[in-house]
């Protein structure tokens, strides 16, 4: 059933071609802007944060590609949940014999799948045409392993991102208007996930803070896995951190959800 939900969600997003085009265009333009900023920065400070120039540029384009997929600065499909909470439509969702957290995860996965094929692929291809990007290297086995690990890291990143956005959307049951919370969340998320700059370029204290937060698991970890910055055990450890955050945050989401459902204030009759 959840697979069917996921598929419908994918189709739903695919009906908005203009929105997709606009996003792809914006991501690509920002990719260029950030690339030239990074170029300037890395000329002054080569190997900043442990990335060589090519890795840094790849990092930029991965970021532009995954910004929408991992919903780093928006709520993704959960903006629908947020709207439904605000206008009371969430009430009719509760009439269905489904688990709400899984339901919305399926919806969000459909969205992410669609955006991976459009918003991620196109900017990365464009970036690859204009800059020298770094693809997984080494023996065939190592390359395959890296791609596989990246896929797993991406899935886990989506889970962590979803869990956090789900929590943000659920606060709507108490706050009703989320614009303030969202704005803070987007800034914190972009900054601490390493989306603006890799957290290894932060001052040590700030880096330590970033490492202790779940946002790294959303972006920096999958990017670093792809850039082969971990050895085999390092990769497993990084994925382990992602799993841990996913478990903790999804568990918290369940708890908050059960509280929220009990105190449903159905807006507008």
């Amino acid at each position: 059933m959840y697979a069917a939900v996921c598929l419908r969600s994918f189709r739903r997003y695919s009906t908005y071609r203009a929105a997709t085009g606009a996003r792809v265009f914006t991501n690509t333009v920002f990719g260029f802007i950030l690339s030239y900023t990074y170029l300037a920065l890395w000329q002054v400070r080569p190997h900043l944060g442990g990335y060589d120039l090519s890795a840094a540029l790849t990092y930029v384009w991965i970021g532009q590609g995954l910004l929408s997929v991992l919903a780093i600065n928006d709520l993704g499909a959960l903006s629908d949940l947020q709207t439904r909470i605000a206008n009371g439509d969430v009430a009719v969702d509760l009439f269905r014999p489904v688990d709400q957290q899984r339901w919305w995860l399926a919806v969000d996965a459909g969205r992410a799948g669609y955006q991976l094929l459009t918003n991620a692929l196109v900017p990365m291809l464009v970036g690859g045409l204009f800059f020298h990007l770094r693809l997984p290297q080494g023996t065939a086995a190592a390359t395959v392993a890296t791609w596989a690990a990246t896929a797993v890291a991406l899935l886990l990143a989506l889970l962590v991102s979803y869990a956090m956005r789900h929590l943000i959307a659920l606060t709507g049951f108490w706050l009703l208007d989320l614009r303030g919370v969202q704005l803070v969340y987007y800034l914190v998320s972009c900054f601490f996930s390493g989306f603006f700059l890799p957290i290894t370029t932060f001052p040590p204290l700030l880096e330590a803070v970033a490492r202790a937060l779940p946002f790294v698991a959303v972006f920096q970890v999958p990017a670093d896995v792809f850039l082969q910055r971990y050895d085999a055990t390092g990769t497993l450890a990084a994925l382990g951190v992602q799993v841990a955050w996913a478990v903790v945050l999804l568990g918290l989401g369940r708890l908050v959800q059960s509280r929220a459902v009990l105190k449903v204030v159905v807006q507008g009759g």
């Binding site: 069917a4 939900v5 189709r11 009906t15 009430a91 269905r96 014999p97």
Partner: peptide, 27 residues
């Protein structure tokens, strides 16, 4: 349940899709 002022149908998709989904939801 039918709430006259709310809908359980999928806004962006054909009616048929919502029914197909109901089939899965309610097995």
């Amino acid at each position: 349940v039918v709430f006259g002022q709310r809908t359980t149908l999928w806004w962006d998709l054909p009616l048929r899709d919502s029914y197909e989904l109901a089939r899965r939801i309610y097995r």
